[in-house]
Design a protein around this nucleic acid. Structure first.
Lengths: 97, 97
DNA sequence: ATAACACTTGGTTATATTGCCAAATAACGA
DNA sequence: TCGTTATTTGGCAATATAACCAAGTGTTAT
């Protein structure tokens, strides 16, 4: 396999990897209709601030979300709108227990 | 968070997790227009037979692929057709290096 | 039967991921 | 300025993942 093809597969799989954790998937769904600051995720999830921040940075790294700082807060919103369709599409999918 | 909601997110994230490895993504793309037996993936990837088999079983568990045995070979094909659109959709996606 | 082939499964080791805590940074208010 | 709040970063321990090898299963060919 060529190096460029390997790189393409690594990049694409990184996006799926970002979505492969229940918490991050929940975050993405939360961001579908509104932006949220980190503290809102912390409050709703009961996870540590650092944990939430790291999850969001993984989503940000692959451009699924984008952020901006306003005052003391950092607000996150969905950047990759196509994620909405993808999640919808996969909701049909069966899983073996 | 309710248990049923937790389960839903775990199931959905399992699908993304299955797609989150370059080798498995490559396999899925290979299966878009044709079925393939395990040995074809082994030959093309230079990975161990057991490694290839395990990757395929992860894809099978979440119903992305299905298989059937004919003679000595096990043939895999794409079960979740919507994966094609998903991969197309994400090809547009940027990644930070 | 038994040998060969095409897998799958179990075991082990190396590496990656996830969670928390503690410390660093940055903005705001007193 | 100093303290408080909001967030990020670094470090560590527990767990999960991925690779290989070896052994097991099932089918075909001799």
């Amino acid at each position: 396999m060529k190096a460029i093809e390997k790189r393409r597969l690594e990049n694409l799989s990184a996006i799926f990897k970002a979505l492969s954790h229940p918490t991050r998937l929940w975050m993405v769904e939360e961001l579908i209709d509104t932006e949220r600051c980190v503290c809102e995720f912390v409050e709703a999830s009961h996870l540590d601030f650092s944990t939430v921040s790291k999850h969001l940075s993984i989503l940000k790294q692959v451009h699924i979300v984008e952020d901006d700082k306003r005052g003391k807060n950092v607000y996150y919103r969905l950047e990759a709108q196509c994620i909405i369709h993808i999640i919808d599409c996969l909701k049909e999918q069966r899983i073996n227990q």
